[in-house]
Design a protein around this nucleic acid. Sequence first.
RNA 1: CGGGGCGUAGCUCAGCCUGGUAGAGCGCUACGUUUGGGACGUAGAUGCCGGAGGUUCAAAUCCUCUCGCCCCGACCA
Length: 516
Amino acid sequence: MAKNITTRAADYSKWYQDVIKAADLADQAPVRGCMVIKPAGFALWEGIQRDLDRRFKETGHINAYFPLLIPVSFLAKEAKHIEGFAMECAVVTHSGLAKNEKGDDLVVKNELEEPFVVRPTSETVIGHMYAQWVQSWRDLPILINQWANVMRWEMRTRIFLRTSEFLWQEGHTVHETAEEAQEETLRMLDVYKSFSEDFLATPVLAGEKTRRERFPGANHTYTIEAMMQDGKALQNGTSHNLGQNFSKAFNVSFEGRDQKREFAYGTSWGVSTRLIGALIMTHSDDEGLILPPRIAPTLAAIVPIWKNDDERAKVIAHCNRLLAKLCDDAELEAARNHLGQRNLFTVFYDNATSQSITLDLRDAMRPGEKHFHWEQRGVPIRFEIGPRDADSGKLVVKYRTGAEKEILDLGAITRDWFDAKLNGIQNELYERALKYREANTHVAATKDELYKTLETKGGFVRAFLAEDDAFEEKVKADTKATVRLIYQPRDMRAKSGKCIASGKDCEREVVFAVSY
RNA sequence: CGGGGCGUAGCUCAGCCUGGUAGAGCGCUACGUUUGGGACGUAGAUGCCGGAGGUUCAAAUCCUCUCGCCCCGACCA
């Protein structure tokens, strides 16, 4: 058992932090509520960007960049929006620094005429720009995404899940008609769902948020919700239909085909570095991080084992034979010229994604320690190669998702074999998570049942419920659970049921859960 | 913003009550022995004791003030 990781059963929250530390993903920043994303963690974000960006482009979107600072007056233009974000804005009020009177410290100098907020989200600045870019129905749609950082002054933070500053992408589109905007909103929800499931191996429920949980300024908010291993829900992404709210606030209007002036219909959608937290809490175990192969920066690690120089030469030669089976000659050659990083010989397996295989040649570390090292970092496949293997032409394979080791002939190793194994692990992780979610999804027919289930079993609880802010409020106060989403009709258990608040017939089924 | 902690070596912490030369374990460096699941020995290096005042012959220790961080709640991607 890992001696530097608290078990999930003992303390889930501690386990989460220990896994991050053991896998070297992030560090506490010297700034309140902020994190330093370390290389191993940033590589996960790069994987997310790589795959998601491709999906955005495939659906016709294009990247741009808008400013970090937003005039306070912009935020004030949309009433619900400002109401939702006012409390969490960081505000820039001064420029310049000067020595204080004693000369031993710095103080702020010039007060700004109009303060700025550090963007908590960019609807307002982007709305302002769109107003200038849109004149005619021929200018529509505009389908822009930006990869950026944002800041929300959170009361309480948790690394990756909720930090004051975080990285995300925010798509902002404007359309000619309400129908197009709605289509776009659902299209992007779908992109998020398939991305989450295919790439992160994280099953999600997709559906609409209730009025109470809606984005400030949106007419409709849709969400994908995943279940963590402690049964809590995590919102993995949101897609909003903004209607004409921001267009009206910022005067994004155009002359239509009918020569009438009309406000454009907007959408926005985003996912953040929170996904890394979701990834950790969906798949990892008491031994440390587990990464789905598609996002894993290192696909496999090779741990050589030797006792003396003769064995060392023999074993390394055998390791090289394995590398030659898996990697292109050109990549192997290139790897020899890479700047060495502490005797880790790293070869690109996949040129397009920069995913690699690493031969761990560190001298100071013994094999056992290396096993733990790669295991805690979530590397999907580990090869162990010792003198016995070098003599017999075999090797030992260990998969991160299983406990057993396999002994294989080197001859059996091919790229096809490797790809199949990676796919197998990817699917296994998805299936495992799906099974967990299903095992922890319950049904409640009455309010009492809802409360009892939340209290004794946790997880997701399905129930029929008509729109009812007061009831949601009450449930939250009593149980901490909120309505995570409304099922889409095709996902419902039945076409209708009895509303757990009113007892009347109702055609809307929702999911209750405690969430992060 | 409330309620709890905690700031001493890179990390985890002891020392503080009862003031008197700055400590341990882990990690780090060197050398040697090791190496199929977290090695061991020997020798080293490492400190503005969070900051500022005060009390005292003397402060990590006592007093005052400050700054910061973590955890638990109320708000949220």
